[in-house]
Design a protein around this nucleic acid. Structure first.
Lengths: 334, 334
DNA sequence: CTGAAAGCGCTAACAG
DNA sequence: CTGTTAGCGCTTTCAG
């Protein structure tokens, strides 16, 4: 199918390519009469602009990238929904990249972006990300980055986060009010600010109640290993009577462990989890959750990025936008 | 940042642009000596090819599109994972588009693809899709399409599906063996082959057991309305003792309805659902599921697409690849 | 208001 | 093996 080009329309109408181009761009330089003729011809001939020619010339791709650890996660899936809505509004296209929690993968992806493939980037860093050189390099090449959820605050850009410290503090306090005295916290990576904030909130609540029992676990990417870690919690004298999970995918594992070891929730163990998982209320027992405003985070992140793209001066400063989470208490923490 | 171009490398090395281009492409026409010099210079100067210039010239974008109804769905999220893995292997980029079950949105997206923005398309049609003109138009413009899950078999291309008829048949038979005699089936859209196949499997099983009770409901996109539809099931003499859900997002609603109306699962109602939802075993009660091989479907769909892209002759025929689902019986159907 | 010309950065014939 | 030439299809000065 020889697709229709500007040149063909120009020839058809005995106009110049430049005029046709401007007419289609609705330039003030072109008369209404000509615009109508061109528009009509374009429609009739089925003209569709070649985005690659246009991008090459304009040095803008009308495309943004979303870089996330994983898509099969209710939080990230909802964030993408929010991003997509805003991108659609601005006529932008959305490229998706997953790091699968690998720093080297993340570096390779960022390296590619130095080509100008995308106009901007929305990202949540991997668990392994303990350096930001690869991100800085892209920002230096004039491609703005907006972080969400898993942010790196040392870079001069906007971070969209939720109130992780406060949520963890409130969650821990709630468990304490339910008479838990040995509360464990399970995070994923000490390198992540989000994880540190939650851990700090947890510790601050313990301190406020002069509780000395502290038990911070790190669970990674290997389900078998994580199962062992979680199971070992209940095989010692050090066993907790409450637990806060910072990672959605550990829910299943914890429920499995408790099932296998006959640990009753909430009788022997009260549970609260950071998650966005819609069915939490129908688990057995119903799971208390700290719900992040995922869709909103996606929307605000995208809006922030487009604001940056609209600006000509690219002086960007470190800045945080905090959208509050909501805790829903259910039977698992009662 | 004035990014490095071929021209700059060429000037630096006193070579022609063409030679540099070929050297970087590892062309057999270029001597190893020159290749090394060029590669080294490119590395040192931080050269990264402009993908838009390259795509314009080569008429290949190295990009595929994934068009799905919704991303916040465990099935589609896993499919994307599979697609992404294969795309990564081939050095392709993945654009994501959501139709949100709207035909007009789907048409607008396909319209855009006539621009050659993507080399190929992987898609699952919307509930509303009762015409294929918009898809055919893209295929006619030489952009191959591979369908998965929600397919349109009338188009000459490959469809990756699972054994929906057999699964529904087996699920229904299982409920019958558990003494259900009034089994309802809840689907989403009569326009979708996938839905019709499941419905047919359901009906075939009923017929085989000479059961005359048949109750097919259609639930759409409006949760409130769907709640009403599901709730009304239990308020009449026609109320079922078994139910098969064809739609993941109805699980929550059904559990809610049963909770609100004090319908005991599985005592008064046995439930089986098509879903890929990882936590199904920890719901209350544990939910029997028909698990589609989502990740595999994504991989096979992508592999099929890349095979088509590799071919020069673009004669494509209607063809189905069937990957079997797996039924996991849990308490909800016992 | 319209058009001619130049060129974004790259690749592909084709000569040499 | 290397270079010259000619664009891909579009946008943008700049003249007229």
């Amino acid at each position: 199918m020889p697709s229709v080009t500007l040149k063909m329309i120009a020839k058809e109408l005995s106009l110049s390519v430049a005029t046709v181009s401007k007419a289609l761009a609705n330039s003030y330089e072109i008369s209404d009469a000509t615009k109508n003729i061109v528009l009509e011809a374009a429609r009739k001939m089925g003209y569709i602009a070649n985005p690659y020619a246009s991008s090459l010339r304009k040095r803008r791709s009308k495309t943004v990238a979303v870089v996330i650890p994983e898509i099969a996660d209710s939080f990230f899936a909802k964030v993408i929904n929010g991003i997509e809505e805003v991108a659609l509004f601005y006529g932008y296209h959305v490229l998706i990249y997953m790091t699968h929690e690998s720093l080297s993968r993340e570096q390779a992806i960022m390296q590619d972006f130095r080509s100008g493939r995308v106009d901007g980037i929305l990202m949540s860093v991997s668990e392994q990300t303990d350096t930001v050189d690869h991100i800085k390099a892209v920002m230096d090449s004039n491609t703005p980055v907006v972080f969400f959820d898993r942010v790196r605050e040392e870079l001069p850009t906007t971070c969209i986060v939720t109130n992780d410290f406060e949520s963890a503090f409130a969650a821990t306090s709630h468990l304490i009010s339910k008479n838990c005295r040995k509360i464990a916290f399970v995070g994923n990576s000490p390198a992540l600010a989000i994880n540190r904030n939650r851990e700090s909130g947890y510790k601050a609540a313990l301190k406020e109640h002069q509780i000395t029992y502290e038990n911070v676990l790190i669970c990674g990417n290997d389900p078998e290993n994580d199962y062992t870690i979680l199971a070992s919690l209940f095989r010692s004298d050090y066993r907790p009577d409450g637990i806060i999970l910072s990672v959605e995918k550990l829910i299943q594992l914890l429920y499995q462990v408790c099932h296998d070891l006959n640990v009753n929730i909430p009788g022997q163990l009260k549970v609260l989890t950071f998650t966005n998982f819609a069915m939490a209320g129908f688990l057995n027992p119903p799971l208390s959750t700290i719900n992040q405003p995922a869709y909103e985070i996606g929307k605000v992140a995208a809006q922030t990025l487009f604001k940056k793209l609209a600006r000509t001066n690219h002086i960007s400063e470190a800045e945080s936008i905090v959208l509050p989470s909501e805790i829903i208490f259910r039977e698992s923490s009662n």
